[in-house]
């Protein structure tokens, strides 16, 4: 279990981490998500004891990282943003060195090394010099170093950055495998990655927590209530007049595309059945009908928007009830898209 309490890190006047608090329960895969410069790496560096916080505490399995550094660090395997490798060593030499550095018991060292090598698919590369390895292999050696000795907590800073799609899939499946027996904390600025792997997401913006929940709950909170997206064959006017015969429709935007009409309909309560019968009666076939939900991506874009007002509005939505949120989401979306070009 990791407890982060009221963490502050200042570099001069710049506040990289601003009163950050969260708890990672045992067995969770916890994701730190944020655009570049949100304070993810700084937070991780503080959690592993590489940096000291200006204020606040980090407890790793109950050990304070500054007061009992050795006990706390023994529970943590850390892969920093840039894998800390010595280019003049072979993979095996390097991992042996790490095992000794981590004070793993000598009699278990060989088994641990073998297991880590096979988990990270490095068996064939064990005798190669790290200098000659490609970026993907180096990342794996870094990962092997982090999971060596199988510490209860594994902290990975952007573990899949710079890897090709196949390697990304491999590393993700490895992380999922590790998550069965370990607590994993990972950071990323790639949303699909966090969604694919994490049980719990913390969204950071300028060193502050914007949201902290499960990915599903975040989407749910922002899901757009009764809004529906429809594609119907026919002309816009005819379709619109059909919609207006249904009770409880609050708004309807229609757009002609070829011989079909795309519509956004908001209604009080569930209007799907009524719409189905209305269109069936008017002999206008429904090609597609689906409830509109805000994706995690949209939540993320709003929450981490450069514009403070947009971000604050998005954060307020999460605190609101889902129904009220629904109406406002659309405004926030229109203002807040397209700023994060690296996504």
């Amino acid at each position: 279990m990791i407890e982060v309490k009221n963490l502050v890190k200042r570099y001069g006047n710049h506040c990289a981490v601003d009163h950050l608090s969260f708890t990672v329960e045992d067995g969770q895969v916890f994701g730190l998500l944020g655009p570049n410069g949100a304070g993810k790496s700084t937070t991780m560096n503080i959690m592993t004891g590489y940096l000291a916080a200006t204020e606040g505490d980090v407890l790793i399995q109950g050990h304070n990282i500054l007061e009992e550094p050795e006990a706390a660090r023994k529970c943590v395997g850390y892969l920093p943003e840039i894998p800390p490798l010595y280019p003049d060593m072979t993979v095996l030499e390097y991992l042996r060195f790490c095992a000794e550095l981590k004070k793993l018991p000598a009699e278990r060292r060989k088994e641990d090394l073998d297991e880590v090598l096979s988990l990270t698919h490095l068996n064939g590369q064990a005798e190669r010099l790290i200098r000659n390895l490609s970026k993907g292999y180096r990342q794996r050696v870094g990962l092997a170093q982090a999971i060596l000795g199988f510490p209860p907590i594994i902290i990975l800073d952007e573990p899949t950055v710079g890897l090709d799609p196949k390697q990304v899939v491999e590393i993700r499946s490895l992380i999922r495998h590790l998550a069965k027996e370990h607590t994993v904390l990972l950071s990323s600025h790639i949303l699909s990655e966090i969604r694919a792997m994490c049980d719990h997401v913390l969204i950071l913006r300028k060193g502050k927590v914007m949201a902290c929940d499960t990915p599903e709950a975040l989407e749910e909170k922002l899901s757009a209530g009764g809004a529906l997206e429809l594609s119907v064959r026919g002309s816009a006017e005819a379709v619109r007049s059909t919609v207006l015969t249904v009770d409880g429709i609050t708004s309807c935007e229609a757009q002609q595309e070829g011989d079909t009409v795309k519509m956004m309909i908001s209604a009080d309560g569930d209007a799907r059945e009524a719409l189905f019968y209305a269109f069936a009666q008017a002999r206008q076939p429904i090609l597609e009908m689906r409830p509109k939900t805000a994706t995690l991506e949209e939540v993320f874009l709003d929450l981490t928007d450069e514009d403070d007002a947009v971000a604050a509005q998005a954060a307020a939505l999460l605190a609101d009830t889902p129904d009220e949120a629904a109406v406002q989401t659309t405004d926030a979306e229109q203002e807040g898209t397209g700023d994060e070009s690296d996504l």
Partner: peptide, 14 residues
């Protein structure tokens, strides 16, 4: 420079 100090300073060694 090569950031390997992150390995040494986050390892259980003083």
């Amino acid at each position: 420079r090569s950031r390997t100090d992150q390995l040494l300073l986050t390892a259980p060694a003083s």
